[in-house]
Each structure stands twice: as structure tokens, then as C-alpha cells.
């Protein structure tokens, strides 16, 4: 196996996903398959090839520094599970 159950649980925690035992087993197997496939790609010699960060070759797509109207706070808050005044409201978090 390329990946352990513990690693799956760790990654799930980082993504704030709650998994059932059955899902942990299933995803461990699936992730293992994906990693094995990656292993296959690793067998290709890429020492002469520059790493690629994007699938498209376009560069320097800029916008000019111009302000356009924002959306209304009502619209901004429309999907908020909880709001108060013009604020989003969340459970208190202190880092």
C-alpha cells in the first residue's frame, strides 16, 4: 500500500471531512490506486523537461488597477448561514 489509513484520516481532517469507517477503507484503496498510477508516471525520465505549473501556456494576464462597483451587502450576505447587520456571523474563533 502506498498510503495508510492514518494518512487518509489526517488528510480528511485537514479538509474538515468526517468519514465513516467504511469510507476510510474505500478511500484508502482509491487513493492507493491513484498513487500507484502516479508511480507509473514517475518511471518516465523527465530530467530534461522543465516543470509545468499550468495547463495553459498563456502568461501575464493582467487587469488594470481600476475600481468597479462592488455588489450590495444584501447580495454579499444572501448565502450567509448567519448574519448580523452587514456582518457575516460565525461561532467565536480565537486562534
Amino acid at each position: 500500500m502506498k498510503i495508510t489509513k492514518n494518512e487518509v484520516l489526517y488528510v480528511a481532517h485537514l479538509a474538515r471531512l468526517e468519514l465513516t469507517d467504511e469510507e476510510v477503507d474505500r478511500f484508502t484503496l482509491q487513493l492507493n490506486d491513484i498513487l500507484l498510477y502516479m508511480e507509473k508516471l514517475n518511471s518516465v525520465d523527465t530530467s530534461e523537461i522543465e516543470p509545468m505549473s499550468h495547463a495553459i501556456t498563456l502568461n501575464n494576464a493582467f487587469r488594470e488597477d481600476v475600481v468597479l462597483p462592488s455588489i450590495s451587502p444584501e447580495l454579499a450576505l444572501a448565502n450567509a448561514p448567519e448574519a448580523q447587520g452587514d456582518f457575516f456571523r460565525v461561532p467565536k474563533v480565537i486562534e
Partner: peptide, 15 residues
Amino acid sequence: KLIHDETNPMSYVDF
């Protein structure tokens, strides 16, 4: 920016 409520366990978010 987060503003923490002094009395309730709530925070208010301004984006």
C-alpha cells in the same frame, strides 16, 4: 477582519 463579540460566543466577519 474578525470582530469578536464581548458577551456572546460569536464573531463578526467583514470581508
